[in-house]
């Protein structure tokens, strides 16, 4: 017994010895400032995304932020600038106006990343336009396809050095490739935080299918789905109803309802009613007011000071 006590005492001493022999900490910090210079656009992003909303808007390609399964190319800086202004005006400011500044601080994803090319899968023959990762990050692909959907009018007729204005050639395409993705993914974030009523899931029960790529717009509509992708799963259905209702005008929305026939249209209308109630009761957002504001913003979009980043 005495012997073991001695051992314990010795162990204690040796532990003390170890502690004595520890190295000093280096006075040099291992965290260094980036050696890469900031641009006026980087500073604008700091002031308009990072500081007010804690969103990092990434447009300079970083391999660790991207999906390494794809061959990708970076965004053209000019297009990233246009998307940054458009996303701010048509999404961040929209929600801030309809709710308050805290809403987006609390709920927005922490990272928005713009990639220039599509995420092509040559084997499957598909191209991914956007992805969301667990409410934290939204990636917008095909940033460089913007040249097909907008007209950039350079003030000096040649390049961007003296500023430029932007007009959208095709609002539908612009919506489809960029803004719809953001509204869609953001709706996922909202319902992941607070689930919508299960009544929604029973409206088209039994009609959801993983084979949505082989479903036409009309077939989907007749089953009560606003888009073919909405037929892939209940959560997708929910966010598709919401995001399409926001971004479609009345004519486009009614055309879908007409395509759906009476049964399909009734289902879509019932889904929309649940979406509206959910948004009002859970998030205190009036979907009709939001939709009107978004339409107004699209009308006013040419008045954005596109090339000013001071």
């Amino acid at each position: 017994m005495k012997k073991s006590l001695l051992y314990i005492a010795l162990l204690g001493i040796s532990a003390l010895f170890c502690a004595c022999a520890e190295d000093d900490l280096s006075s040099e910090s291992v965290i260094k400032e980036s050696i890469n210079a900031e641009t006026d656009f980087d500073r604008w992003l700091e002031d308009n995304y990072r500081a007010p909303f804690n969103i990092r808007f990434l447009y300079r390609y970083e391999d660790i932020e991207t999906n390494l399964n794809y061959d990708l190319t970076p965004a053209r800086e000019l297009y990233a600038r246009i998307l940054a202004k458009a996303v701010r005006y048509l999404w961040l400011d929209l929600y801030t106006e309809q709710s308050d500044v805290h809403f987006m601080r609390e709920h927005s994803p922490r990272v928005i990343m713009v990639i220039g090319s599509g995420a092509h899968d040559p084997t499957a023959g598909t191209v991914t336009l956007g992805t969301a990762e667990g409410g934290l990050k939204i990636t917008l692909y095909v940033g460089n396809w913007l040249e097909n959907y907008v007209t950039i009018n350079y003030n000096n007729g040649v390049d961007e050095t003296d500023g430029y204005t932007v007009s959208i050639k095709s609002v539908d395409d612009f919506n489809y490739y960029y803004l719809h993705t953001i509204h869609h993914e953001f709706a996922h974030i909202l319902h992941q935080k607070k689930e919508y009523p299960q009544d929604f899931n029973v409206i088209s029960k039994g009609d959801y299918s993983a084979q949505w790529t082989s479903v036409s717009d009309q077939e989907a509509a007749r089953l009560g789905f606003i888009t073919p992708y909405a037929s892939s799963a209940t959560h997708e259905d929910f966010v598709e109803v919401y995001s399409n209702y926001l971004s479609m005008n009345d004519a486009q929305w009614n055309q879908r309802l007409q395509m759906a026939g009476s049964v399909g249209a009734d289902r879509i209308q019932r889904k929309l009613a649940i979406v509206k109630t959910y948004m009002k009761e859970v998030w205190d957002i009036d979907v009709e007011a939001m939709r009107a504001s978004l339409a107004r913003r699209y009308n006013d979009i040419e008045h954005i000071d596109w090339s000013n980043f001071n």
Partner: peptide, 27 residues
Amino acid sequence: SSSVVLTFDTFNDYIHYLCDPDEYAEN
């Protein structure tokens, strides 16, 4: 990243022409 890497991190017509997957849906 895995070592010191020079990245052409915004699109450059000359550099990225030879890596752009968009035209042929692959690089």
